[in-house]
Amino acid sequence: MTLLEQLNQDMKSAMKAREKERLSVIRMVKASLQNEAIKLGKDTLSEDEELTVLTREFKQRKDSLHEFKEAGRDDLVEKLNFEIEVLKAYMPAQLSEAELEDIIQSTIQEVQAASKKDMGKVMSAVMPKVKGKADGSLINKIVQKHLQ
């Protein structure tokens, strides 16, 4: 089942259950996917392109959540936490720190990185391997730890 089919099915179940907030999030994601398809001039997106859109939506909400927490906007924090939980259902399973460590260490050996100057090389090799499965800031932190 494609992501769009899953979203349509979940949208119907949210309508039947009268879950307005969940329905709203699903519609936003669906609209983002459709807008991306239009922007790229395609009828349907590949799985990789869908994952890119989902990751972007997820990251936007995480960034906004941080800003709202700092501003003391608890009403918006609660709403964003709910949206993030709904989005997590469509995201691939996240890698653990141990799994990330293994991937990063093997990538460092592959690209023969030795110092922090090679960080860009390592990051550009790691990111496609873990796309959508790990947070970029966590990856950055682990790479910095290994490249000292």
Rank of each mutant, 00 (worst) to 15 (best):
L138N: 09
D135C: 02
K12C: 00
Q105S: 09
M123R: 09
A114C: 01
K16T: 10
K39I: 01
R27M: 08
Q9F: 10
A134E: 00
E70S: 13
F58P: 00
L23V: 09
S64A: 10
Q94Y: 00
E70I: 14
Q112W: 01
L87I: 01
D43P: 00
Q109P: 01
A93E: 08
E99K: 07
F68L: 11
L40K: 15
M123K: 05
L80S: 02
R56Y: 07
S137R: 13
E57M: 13
A71Y: 05
G120K: 09
K141Q: 11
F58V: 00
L100S: 00
A71E: 12
D43M: 12
V86I: 15
E47T: 13
L33C: 06
K121T: 13
M28W: 01
S96R: 06
A14K: 06
N140R: 12
Y90V: 06
S32G: 12
Q144G: 11
K116V: 11
K39Q: 11
D75W: 04
E67T: 12
D74Y: 08
V122A: 05
K12N: 10
L40P: 04
E97V: 07
A31E: 11
K121N: 14
E21T: 12
K88S: 07
L3G: 04
A113Y: 08
M127L: 15
M11Q: 03
K116Y: 04
A113W: 07
N35D: 14
K69P: 03
K116G: 08
L76S: 10
V86W: 07
S137N: 13
M127P: 03
D102Q: 15
H146E: 06
S115T: 15
R27C: 02
I104N: 02
E110S: 12
A125S: 11
Q105L: 14
Q144T: 09
D48L: 12
S115C: 14
S137H: 13
K20A: 14
Q6S: 06
K116S: 09
M91G: 03
L100I: 02
D118N: 08
G120R: 13
P92G: 05
L33D: 10
N140I: 04
M15K: 11
S124N: 14
R18Y: 10
E57W: 01
F82L: 07
E99F: 09
N140K: 12
K12F: 06
K88F: 07
D74H: 10
Q9E: 13
L3V: 04
Q148S: 14
Q6A: 05
L76W: 01
S124Q: 15
G120P: 06
D10G: 06
R18N: 10
T52S: 05
K141D: 12
K30I: 08
T55S: 15
Q105F: 05
A31M: 11
K69V: 08
L51H: 05
F58Y: 13
T55A: 11
Q34F: 06
S115F: 01
A114P: 00
E50M: 11
L76K: 14
M123L: 15
L80P: 02
S106H: 14
M123Q: 05
E78G: 02
G120V: 10
S96K: 04
L33W: 03
S137L: 14
M11K: 04
L147E: 04
E110P: 06
P128I: 08
K42F: 05
K145R: 12
L80F: 05
D48P: 02
E83Q: 15
K121A: 07
L76M: 12
V53Y: 04
L80K: 08
I142M: 13
F68H: 04
